[in-house]
Every structure is written in structure tokens, then in C-alpha cells.
Design a protein around this nucleic acid. Structure first.
Lengths: 240, 240
DNA sequence: ATAATACACGAACAATTGTTCTGTGTCAAT
DNA sequence: ATTGACACAGAACAATTGTTCGTGTATTAT
């Protein structure tokens, strides 16, 4: 068999829906998974389940967990609502595992970082990047995180390319060894560097070991915008 | 609890019907037996089944064998039809509840009763009459029963007409008040009478109260052939 | 070529669920 | 007082049924 690729209603889906309404009409209750399988010549219950999940996802039917014969065929009217519900529920199910991080803007060397408001929740993000919680330190509080999209090659000394997404945690200060996003007053420049406090100055070390550090004598002219938590590079293979 | 005696819809029945429609309305499918039990505070599934059978009998619901959640609540319109269907089906199912009774011959006043052999099973009956088990006392053992066809009007004193079928149970003795078929040696006659043992004689009382009893002084001259269990008269309307 | 995705089977499993059997108590009639 | 019909509980059983897992194959994308 095999038909459907990606989206829309395949022949199978239609047949199942037909059978559901017909069976319902004739018997007053819904068929079991095996009865559905028989009607469309599918041998395995798992495959029927597979299709039913798709139909449920698309909002054509709804059913209850571990309840036999609980399939309901939804009317077009109900469909949209149910679809939304499903989406929300699914998102909710993964809320613990995947956290959305708002992308607040672009980071360009020659411009200051867009100021992250104290309450990130009220800031309307351009979009958001989804990060598996497992990729973050367990104690990282999602509310303190925001993301920026790097524009230009000016941060190659931090091993950050044009188009990369940088995830930061709001912070006004840093510990030695932290990679931070800083605005340098005297240079009028934003940059990503490893932060090291020395006796009477601050050393900003590029990630790229072949490049030399920057020394900032006046601590006041250095404004830490956040600590870098992660850099994400979605590498696309370039069609030749 | 305990409510219903004999017929009609009890409180329980109504509650179940209510719950069925409500559950149906809310979930789009029917509840399981246990869910019904919970709703009416009944602990055992068997009792719920018991009630459901009654409701089915009365035509309020219908359900399919061994199919979960297959209960349908029937509309008044469907009810009659379904009730009839149930009755017919039950009649068929009750083959065990209809017992054939062999008709061993005729009973004539002037002749002795055809001897019922000790094992009725080996006696080739003229034909047989079918009796619903429900018409008999529950403990009546079908193997002990046989039937005779009355010939002649000589038993009108027992309210038995020509052509009636009498069903008897084999017996050599009788209790007071039993209607028995007896052969009277001294009269050379078979008759049906109520049996009453008195001090030193036996009184045989006709069913017809306007007629007088027979007294038998010698118990040996009275041979009880069986107790009358039933008299069947198939009344045919006589074409004028 | 390789990986990822979609489609498919089958079996084993665990829950749910309908059925049946045994026993108990009550009520009405004999 | 005994019997039989009725109302009920509980457990054990067997069937139905939803879920999941391992595996395999084809198709598409990289």
C-alpha cells in the first residue's frame, strides 16, 4: 500500500472516516481498532492506531485514552476547535521538555544590544527558538533566557558566524571564564568575549585562540548585557 | 435497597436510563457496565447486568453480545419493534425451556390406562405435546411426565371433555387433594378424581361440585396410575 | 550513499470489560 | 415452617480491546 506523504487526507484516511460513520450509523456505537483494521485490510492494530492518531491530530476524530469504542467523528464545526485543543495539549505535554526562548532581535557589532526588558514576558519577540531542556544546565531558569540572532561576520573571533543564534541569560555582572555579551563605550561596539577580571582591568578574550585579547581599563565603560549560554548554528548544506 | 416486585420501571431502571442518555450525550459513547454500577451505587457487575437484561426485555435498550459499550437507548418508536424481536428470539433460545411430553395413548372410562413403562424414554409415543417449562412447577422432572388423550364424555364430572389432553406424573400413591387417574377394579373403569384418604376408606371427589363422591372401601381395588399435572383443552371454534 | 521519514506487520502485554457462578438475605405465598 | 422468586454482592473467568515495542521496507531528502 503506502500512499500519503506529509499532509492531507489520504485514501486510507477517507476510508476510515467513511467506515466510522457507517458503522456508527448501523450499530449505534463505534468500531474497535481491529474492526477498523478489517474494514480497510490492515493487519496490524498498531497501524490503525497510527492512522487514528493522524486523524485525531487533524481534528477529524477524537477519542479517549484506554476506553474501548470511544472514537467520535467530529463535525467540521468541531474540527477547528478540537484541532486547536490538540495542539495546545501536545505543546503542554512537552512544556517540561522543550522550552521556547524568545528571539529579541539582532546583535550587530556596531550597535548596542536591544535592551532586554526586566520582564521578558512582556516583550514581543520576533520569534522563538525551541531548546530541549536537556541541553541546558538543570538549574537554568527559562524566564531569564533570551536569544539574539547574529548579523555580520564581526564576531568570528568568538567563533560565532553570521546567522548564528546566541542564547543569553540576563546578567549585569560576570565571573571569570564566563562568555559574555558586552557593550564597549569607548569603542562603540558590541562583542562576545570570555570575561576575566584582573587586578585593575578586565581582559576580554576571544574564543579564537589565534587572536589577542582586549583590555578594558575603565570598568565603567564596559556594560555586560548577558552571559552566553549557548550558540546555535543551523548549518545548511549549500546547494552546489 | 430492593424495590421492584414484578413489573414496571423501578427507580433503578429510571436512573440507569437517565445515566445512559446523559453519558451518551457527554461522551459520545455508552458507558461500561462498571461505570453504570458506579453511577447508581451498585457494587456488582452482575446486578447491573441483571437490570440491563430487564431493560432490554422491556425494550428500552438494546445491546450486542460481548461487545463493550454497545448499549443503545431506544426511542419509543423502536421500543415496540424491539420488544417483539426479543420475545421471538427468547422463544427460540428457550428450546430448553420447552419440554415435549409424550402422548402415550387414549384414556377411556371403560378401559384401563395404557401402562406407562417404568422408563418412559423407551416408549414410542403416539405424538407429543409441548409444554412451556414455565407452566410447570419448577421442580417437576420432565422424565416423569406423560400425557393421555381423553376419549369420550365420561369424564365430564372431572371437568374434562372429549378430546382434552391430560398430563400426568407417574405415581403409585397420592396425597390428599391430589387429582389422580385411577383404575377401579370393582367398577372396571378409569376415572379422574380428587383423592382424599379418610379413616378406613378413600373418597374420590369429582371436580364438578354438583356431583357426589365415590367411596372406595378396599384400598387394594384402587390403582393410582398417576397424578394429574395439567389438563389441556385446545378449543376450536366450530364453524357454524 | 546515507540518513531521516513515512508506512507497515506482528506479537506481546496490560486494561478494560462482559459473562457466569456461588452465596446471602428478604419477602410473599403456601 | 418451608419454598420459591427476587434483589444483591463478590469473585473468578474469558474475551475484547487499546497500547507499545521491535523490526522491516520503501520513499525522500541530504
Amino acid at each position: 500500500m503506502m500512499a500519503r506523504r506529509s499532509q492531507g487526507l489520504s485514501e486510507r484516511h477517507r476510508k476510515i472516516l467513511d467506515f466510522l460513520t457507517r458503522f456508527q450509523e448501523e450499530n449505534g456505537y463505534s468500531p474497535s481498532i481491529r474492526e477498523i483494521g478489517d474494514s480497510i485490510n490492515v493487519k496490524s492494530t498498531s497501524l490503525v492506531d497510527y492512522y487514528l492518531n493522524q486523524l485525531e491530530q487533524m481534528g477529524f476524530i477524537s477519542r479517549d485514552n484506554r476506553v474501548s469504542r470511544s472514537i467520535r467523528v467530529l463535525e467540521p464545526a468541531e474540527r477547528l476547535l478540537n484541532r486547536a485543543v490538540n495542539t495546545v495539549r501536545q505543546a503542554g505535554r512537552q512544556l517540561d521538555d522543550i522550552i521556547p526562548i524568545p528571539v529579541l532581535g539582532r546583535i550587530v557589532a556596531s550597535e548596542p544590544i536591544p535592551v532586554p526588558p526586566s520582564d521578558l514576558a512582556y516583550f514581543d519577540p520576533d520569534y522563538s527558538v525551541e531548546i530541549a531542556r536537556s541541553l541546558l544546565p538543570t538549574r537554568e531558569r527559562p524566564e531569564d533566557l533570551f536569544a539574539l540572532e547574529v548579523q555580520g561576520d564581526s564576531m568570528i573571533d568568538a567563533m560565532v558566524n553570521d546567522g548564528d543564534t546566541v542564547i543569553l541569560r540576563r546578567a549585569q555582572e560576570a565571573n571569570n571564564g564566563d562568555m559574555v555579551a558586552v557593550w564597549l563605550d569607548d569603542r562603540d561596539e558590541t562583542t562576545l568575549k570570555y570575561f576575566y577580571k584582573e587586578k585593575d582591568r578586565v581582559r576580554l578574550q576571544p574564543a579564537n585562540p589565534t587572536m589577542g585579547p582586549i583590555y578594558v581599563e575603565n570598568p565603567a565603560s564596559l556594560r555586560i548585557m548577558g552571559k552566553v549560554v549557548m550558540v546555535i548554528r543551523q548549518v545548511k548544506s549549500v546547494a552546489a
